[in-house]
Each structure stands twice: as C-alpha cells, then as structure tokens.
C-alpha cells in the first residue's frame, strides 16, 4: 500500500468509516465531556483507553468546538483505586450524567453514551470523505 493511500485510509477512519460517533452533540445542553482513567490498562481500564483511541477523534471531528477533557492517572504500582468514569458536564458546569467504564468494552461504552447524550446523527450528505476526487 502506498504512503498516500495509507494516509487517506487513516483520515477516512476519522471522518467516514467509524460510524457510531458520527453525531452532532446538542451544545445547548452540554458544556463538555470528561473522562478519567489510568494510563495503564490494568484493573479493567483498557476499554476506556480504547474508547479514546477509536471513537473520540471522530466525535471531536464532527463537534470541533465541543470540549473533551481527558484525565489519565498514573498508577503503575497498582496501589491506589483509580476511578474509570466518563462525566457529561452540563451548561452550569455540573455533572449531568456519569458512565462507569470499568471492565467494559469500548463499544458498550459508546452505546451507553449514545443513550444518555442528546444528539443528532450526522446526515449522509454532511459526512466528509477524503480522496474522492483522486
């Protein structure tokens, strides 16, 4: 595969191929999303990390002005109990919804987020596909 084709695929993964997070978040209701989890995978934090890697770029791409904060806590010696939660923050900076991400797969976390978040699915004509003209 050529370098250019590889990059087009990489960009399309963000803007076109990953379907679940292709949503417009209702910014009149929410201020931000805040995720808290460990740097390392142990203790059931792998799903949260995967969720960040796989779905958050697309979510940010279709909501460029929406704030997404990540708090990654170092706990290499496994001594402390680190929360693994996603908090949806409302307009008055209070936590509206909380999603527990511990011991869960990234897909089920995304499904719960879609359930709890007020959103509209991006229509087909507004999806961005890279490399169509070439």
């Amino acid at each position: 595969m050529s370098k250019i084709l590889r990059q087009i695929n990489f960009l399309n993964k963000i803007s076109y191929v990953t379907k679940k997070p292709q949503i417009f978040i209702n910014t009149e209701k929410y201020n931000a999303i805040r995720l808290t989890f460990q740097v390392l995978n142990h203790g059931g934090h792998m799903g949260a990390r995967q969720f960040w890697r796989k779905y958050l770029p697309t979510l940010q791409f279709y909501n460029p002005n929406f704030r997404i904060d990540l708090v990654r806590i170092k706990n290499e010696e496994k001594k402390n109990e680190v929360p693994c939660v996603m908090e949806i923050i409302g307009k008055d900076n209070s936590v509206v919804e909380t999603i527990d991400m511990k011991d869960r797969q990234y897909d089920s976390i995304m499904d719960e987020l879609l359930e709890k978040l007020d959103h509209n699915v991006v229509p087909e004509d507004k999806l961005v596909k890279v490399g169509e003209g070439h």
Binding site: I4, Q7, L11, L35, L59, I68, L70, G131
Partner: peptide, 20 residues
C-alpha cells in the same frame, strides 16, 4: 496533490487526532 486540503479543513483533522 492527493493529500491537499484547505488550511481550516486540515486543522479540523489535526484537532481531531490530538484529542485528549
């Protein structure tokens, strides 16, 4: 160039990649 984009479009992609 096949990877050409206007600057705002390019920035939109870069911001998405850098999330978190």
């Amino acid at each position: 160039h096949p990877l050409y984009m206007k600057v705002p479009d390019a920035l939109r992609f870069l911001r998405a990649v850098e999330v978190g």
